[in-house]
């Protein structure tokens, strides 16, 4: 017998923990991004970069040439599966290149995923259900992290798998499992820092243009300022005002690519700066979500 849809039917299930709702926030955020055709342009750019790395690894590993020559060819392309001390791992380089696409995508998605909630009154919709501010903030941070992972950590791990798959044996995976862990850890740093900064910025600025301008300035202007100050004062620590550089330096910590104690110290300073930045942003974010009128 069919259900009479014109009549009201009771629901007798059990409600789950509000933390499960954070997954719904992530799912909806991804849906919002993938439904915007303009965002696909940026996503395709990210895919092209990944595919070029993928193709380079594939082609080079298919030549019947000694492994050392293969490495040289890949290094010429900007990828090195075995990073020497003092040199960046190919995975860091790849993730850094992907980060440019990530920055562009996040610059525009901040207003859609977070700003619109404040601007269009969706925040009361979220907070008047069973979730509270903690769940909302964690859900949004996870949503941004999912985008970052999709464009950086995920493809980097695929390259790691590809290299091991197309070289002679599984020994690459077994001997360099720490590279996969380093990729995950570096990806985690990118996710934490970028998501906290973007959600906070979007909660305050809300509209696409101010968010995009400020977001770009944060990563382009500060880099330039850091370089200028470093040159003018002959103090390389000025470069640490650039968050991208800080993230890369922290990433090097995981890949263990330090040839001197000064670089090691540099990375720890970068970690301290990022931690402080995230802590301040998180406090500002919590205050912002709390300050919004809930039932208007």
């Amino acid at each position: 017998m069919g259900v009479d849809l014109a009549r009201y039917h009771a629901w007798e299930g059990r409600l789950q923990s509000p933390w499960m709702a954070t997954l719904a926030i992530v799912r909806v955020a991804l849906l919002q991004i993938f439904r915007r055709r303009s965002y696909w342009v940026v996503l395709v750019l990210g895919m092209l970069n990944f595919l070029s790395f993928w193709a380079a690894i594939y082609l080079v590993t298919q030549f019947d040439i000694p492994p050392r020559v293969q490495e040289r060819l890949l290094e010429a392309f900007g990828f090195s599966a075995y990073a020497a001390p003092g040199q960046d791992s190919g995975y860091i380089k790849f993730m850094q290149r992907q980060s440019i696409v990530v920055m562009m995508l996040l610059a525009f998605s901040g207003s859609l995923l977070v700003g619109a909630d404040f601007r269009g009154g969706a925040l009361p919709f979220y907070l008047s259900r069973r979730i509270d501010r903690r769940h909302y903030i964690v859900g949004k941070l996870l949503a941004i992290s999912a985008v970052v992972t999709l464009l950086t950590t995920g493809p980097a791990l695929l390259l790691f798998l590809e290299y091991g798959m197309f070289t002679s044996s599984a020994s690459y995976w077994l001997e360099h499992w720490n590279v996969a862990l380093a990729v995950l850890a570096y990806g985690l740093v990118l996710c934490v820092v970028l998501s906290i900064l973007l959600v906070t910025l979007s909660a305050y600025l809300q509209r696409a243009a101010p968010i995009a301008i400020t977001w770009s300035s944060l990563f382009v202007l500060l880099r330039e300022m850091g370089s200028q100050f470093a040159r003018a004062t002959n103090n390389q620590y000025w470069r640490l005002i650039d968050p991208w550089r800080d993230m890369r330096e922290v990433g090097r910590l995981f890949f263990g690519q330090f040839d001197d104690i000064e670089r090691w110290r540099f990375a720890w300073y970068a970690l301290a700066i990022l931690s402080a930045l995230c802590a301040v942003a998180l406090v500002a974010l919590v205050r912002r979500v709390r300050a919004v009128d809930i039932a208007t």
């Binding site: 719904a24 909806v28 919709f125 259900r129």
Partner: peptide, 30 residues
């Protein structure tokens, strides 16, 4: 069940997705 006065909608979603999201946020199994 709270029905807000404000528009309180989530951009880009369809009607059924919006109501499903409300159920998810209440803690219903998806």
């Amino acid at each position: 069940g709270y029905m807000a006065e404000a528009a309180a909608t989530v951009p880009v979603l369809r009607g059924v997705e919006f109501v499903t999201l409300a159920g998810d946020l209440y803690g219903m199994p998806h």
